[in-house]
Amino acid sequence: MKKRGIGLGCSWYGTGYGNGFPDVSSAFVEIHDDGSATVLTGAVDVGQGSNSIFAQIVAEELGLEAQDICVYSGDTDATPDSGTTAATRQTYNTGNAVLKAVRQAKSSLLVYAAREFSCPTPEGIELKEGYIGVKGDPSRRVPLADLVFQARLRGERFISAESSTARSTPVDPETGQGAPYWPYSFGCQSAEVEVDTETGVVQVLKVVAVHDVGKALNPTQVEGQIAGGVTQGIGYALLEELELDEGKIKNPAFSSYLIPTALDVPNIEAFFVEDAESTGPFGAKGLGEPAMLPTVAAIINAIDDAVGVRITSIPATPEKILKALAEKNGEVNR
């Protein structure tokens, strides 16, 4: 018989290296003569899309489009150290460094422009849609490219280097008391499963995932991180296990170490909650790791909801489920 159940899982995750380990990212920014810009950072884009996030941050600050920004990363001869792409830290940490750097380059640009527009303070200057001019007076603006090119002829350069350090302190080694991470990211997921009580096979029918991202700098990428995380979570809960025999891996192949295929993954509904984190770039915090956390709990709780057995050791293989069902029904030694 096939039985259905729904389970809920919540999680939290402190991002960054934590425990007082210096968590520093750096970035260089150069605004070019035609008004486009380049950002250099050591942060490696491992496929999650950090480069395009950095382009958006710089574009936002300079009133440009993301495609006006060149991002070059992960080359030790050309880019500054931005820490590792891990700990859900690149959008937050390197994002902050990039934001600081572009703001620094921009501030000298604004000072220069204020002089040009006879504005007593750079506060009165704005960058918007490729133009630079006086805030609130659309008649007094010029293309950014014109102004930067002119500045160049006068020997002005808009180049910056900045670093950003995340806040974190070591905990007391005896009591574990302290503030080891910042910020924390939250989320919850629900899973609906169908359990075949004869074969023990669990099919995940639907996952709903709601995650706290501070501010979604790119909703498409947020959804991508969530769907990818849920899929890894499904593999973790139901399929994946390295089998070891005296330290030797018995299944070092994709035919025996199984990850989910397109047919094993259900419809995933991804939502995000935006409650700005004051220390993050535009309020953002990271999502990479949190996206996979609640899935395993939601699935294990859903299995219990469906057939009334509590699986305490993952992956929840058909073998374990049949064994638990037999124990529950008082059948011994089948």
């Binding site: 074969t199 096979v201 399929l239 035919s255 199984l258 989910p260 295929t261 397109a262 047919l263 094993d264």
Partner: peptide, 10 residues
């Protein structure tokens, strides 16, 4: 057939 997953399953 009973496989470990729904495609690419021995």
């Amino acid at each position: 057939k009973l496989g470990r997953r729904k495609a690419l399953a021995i």
